[in-house]
Amino acid sequence: MKKLILITLLVSFSMSSFAQRNSRANNDWYVSLGVNAINSLGTQSPFNSPSDWAFHSPISAAIEYNWSDQFAIEQSITFNGFTEDHVIDGVNLEEDYSYLSLDTNMKFYFDQYIFPNFNWIELHANAGVGFFHVDETNISANIGGGALFWLNGNRTFGLRVQTTGKFAFNHPESGFDNNHFQHHLQVVFKL
Rank of each mutant, 00 (worst) to 15 (best):
M1L: 08
L4G: 11
L4S: 05
I5Y: 11
L6W: 12
L6Q: 15
T8H: 04
T8A: 11
T8V: 08
S12E: 02
F13S: 11
S14Q: 09
S14N: 14
S17W: 10
A19P: 05
A19T: 00
Q20G: 12
N22V: 05
S23Y: 01
R24P: 03
A25S: 08
N26G: 10
W29A: 09
V31Q: 01
S32R: 14
L33A: 13
G34R: 01
N36E: 05
N36V: 03
A37P: 00
A37Y: 01
A37N: 00
I38P: 02
S40C: 11
S40G: 15
S40R: 00
L41R: 04
T43K: 02
S45M: 04
P46D: 00
P46R: 00
F47E: 06
S51A: 14
W53N: 04
F55A: 05
H56A: 15
H56F: 12
H56R: 14
S57H: 11
S57I: 11
S57C: 09
S60Q: 02
A61G: 15
N66H: 15
D69E: 12
A72V: 06
I73H: 03
I73Y: 15
E74G: 14
S76A: 13
T78Q: 07
G81T: 12
G81N: 03
F82T: 09
T83C: 03
E84L: 05
E84W: 05
V87H: 04
D89W: 01
D89A: 07
V91T: 14
V91I: 06
N92D: 14
L93R: 11
L93V: 08
E95W: 02
S98D: 12
L100V: 08
L102I: 10
D103K: 06
D103S: 10
T104I: 03
T104V: 07
N105A: 04
M106K: 06
M106D: 03
M106F: 13
Y113H: 12
F115C: 04
F115S: 03
F115Y: 05
F115T: 15
P116K: 12
N117F: 08
F118C: 07
F118N: 14
N119S: 13
I121E: 05
A125P: 10
N126E: 14
V129P: 09
V129S: 11
V129H: 09
G130N: 08
H133F: 13
D135L: 09
T137K: 06
N138E: 13
N138W: 12
I139V: 10
I139P: 09
I139T: 15
S140G: 15
I143W: 06
I143F: 04
I143H: 01
G145R: 01
G145K: 00
G146H: 05
A147P: 03
A147G: 12
F149M: 12
W150R: 10
L151Y: 11
N152F: 05
N152Q: 04
N154I: 02
R155T: 01
T156W: 07
G158Y: 01
R160Q: 07
R160S: 02
K166I: 03
F167Q: 07
P172E: 15
G175R: 12
G175A: 13
G175C: 13
G175K: 09
F176A: 13
D177A: 08
N179H: 12
N179G: 07
H180R: 06
F181I: 03
F181H: 05
Q186F: 01
Q186V: 08
Q186W: 02
V187G: 07
V187H: 09
F189L: 10
L191A: 07
